[in-house]
Amino acid sequence: MTELFDPPPERDLPARQVTRMRAELLSTISRPQRRSTRLRVAVVAATAVVAVSAVLLVGRPGLPGAEPSGGFELVAMGPTELSPTLHRSVEQCLDWNAQESLHTESSAEGGDASEGGAPGASWPAVTADDLAVAAQRDDTAALLFLTEAGYFTCEVFWGRAGRAPGGGLGGVAHWSQRDWLPGPVQWLSLSSTEADGGDVAVSGRISARVHRLVLEHGDGGSTTARLASGVFGLVTKGAEVNRNAELVSYDADRNEIDRRLLVDGVWELEHCYVDPSGQIINPPMVGEDEPHPESPLVADCRPAERWTR
């Protein structure tokens, strides 16, 4: 490789840094195994890059069922809205889903299904009928499947014709919080063109009182999501979505009912949420330097919202 593109030489980790990192890790894994609800909800995931043949995407802009040869964005809310390109991405995801042998009870705890991108994640087996949202920008598709018990997310990177696509798979096979939402909205799949944002494709769930959902990019722009049957999907175009980006929910009277940072996702919500039975479905975010409380007080939590399709 040209020297210009060679990275700097490797460095040693300073001994005291190694000691601290090691101590933090050991302290973390040694703590009593009170499995946090937060950890039971896998977000996006992980990677099972699989080699297959790619397909040339062709079509004309603006026509149902066809795509332009240049840049385009598509959002389909379910299997009945699929264009040929999205259909192809769905087939690819179903193929990867079927190839994975880990539809096992290993995730019966709901838990470590796809934390942070480990190879070998587990998720539910899905069919095309389970497709909730399919979003695609150019050669990258992000799909969300919802089953009776869990969910499955899939990203496909098609690349150029004749080249093997890559992808990322994730999900939870048995999802204890399936019937409840931490407030009006919850994203489950988030992909981005850059490590720190750029254009994003987001999909997830909404409660019945959400009639409009807007992503404010944080760069002055915004994108309105498509909503259908308790789910949403959106794809930005030419945006610089950043860490200040917020998902803003509106009710039928156009009143703003919720505003939350996109990057907080389902893992790190500012508040805890509790269902009517008093079950906390999402504990609150814990700051870097704050102690980890054993259990948040139910009285401090906001009401969870029921999710139905």
Binding site: T47, G168, M285
Partner: peptide, 12 residues
């Protein structure tokens, strides 16, 4: 994989 999702996962 972790680096790829760092901006949304580092805080967690």
């Amino acid at each position: 994989n972790t680096a790829r999702t760092e901006w949304r996962s580092a805080r967690r």
